[in-house]
Design a protein around this nucleic acid. Structure first.
Lengths: 130, 130
DNA sequence: AGACGATAGTATCCATTAGATACTTGGGTG
DNA sequence: CACCCAAGTATCTAATGGATACTATCGTCT
């Protein structure tokens, strides 16, 4: 199999790698995983730390991460009720690559934002007919 | 500043790191960047390799990546027209962390999909009242 | 006993984004 | 003159995200 085929497979709609990019394409999922890096948190704590996410969307994100075996949901039958979310071993293995991405962000996002400003200024100039 | 504050900042809605997660939260953006790793491609080639993306969505993805300074768009005034897209140096620096993620996917997605199947079976059992 | 409070969600409605499909533009070729 | 390609744009609909309000449970307070 040559390089062309390999690339073709990796970016094919059926390729398993696509699953991962769909997974991190869930805007909140990556943030939830990173915020759980240091240990379990309950629902209300997650809401406080991952700002600003509505309960509906957070619930959906947590359920789908649970479904994919990346975190566990534990209900303690007490009042007021308490539910803990914590990374599974599989979920923890996602942390190093996500941390690498976050470090990239810390190093380069300002450059990216500057590029964005310049681009927008150019577009404004074009729109004004200059 | 203690750990709490640090975590609070990183996951704050105003934190620049959030920009990156919004960026890779664009489902197609990561795929486009990786597919451009080996050199420039024209629009129609991108469509073929990143399956299956509609032209509207691909155009939007490319424009926003250009805006963020991650790739350059070059128009060659010939017929039929030709437009090349290629990563900028900044865009290239994103490749190592993205490749790390893709390797994670290649190693772990099958485990994730298995967890997903099991979860769905459990849910079916619950729904059927077992 | 009845109101109140905390936690972990649902429910509802609206806005934004993604996707499918068809159309456009422009010049070269038969 | 009709047709072709490449690189999009336009239009309409489906899916997703977000704001806001509501519910369920049970213990505590008055």
């Amino acid at each position: 199999m040559d390089t062309e085929d390999f690339i073709g497979n990796v970016f094919d709609a059926d390729c398993p790698s696509r699953v991962l990019f769909a997974r991190i394409g869930d805007k909140w999922a990556t943030l939830v995983i990173e915020v759980l890096a240091d240990g379990p948190l309950r629902f209300s704590e997650l809401r406080k730390r991952v700002k600003v996410v509505t309960p509906k969307v957070l619930t959906h994100t947590l359920r789908s991460l649970e479904r994919d075996g990346l975190l566990n949901r534990t209900v303690y039958p007490q009042v007021p009720s308490r539910v803990d979310y914590e990374l599974t071993p599989l979920g923890q293995t996602l942390l190093p690559p996500l941390t690498a991405l976050r470090q990239w962000a810390e190093n380069n996002v300002s450059t990216m934002l500057r590029a964005r400003d310049e681009y927008d200024e150019e577009q404004d100039a074009v729109t004004l007919g200059l």
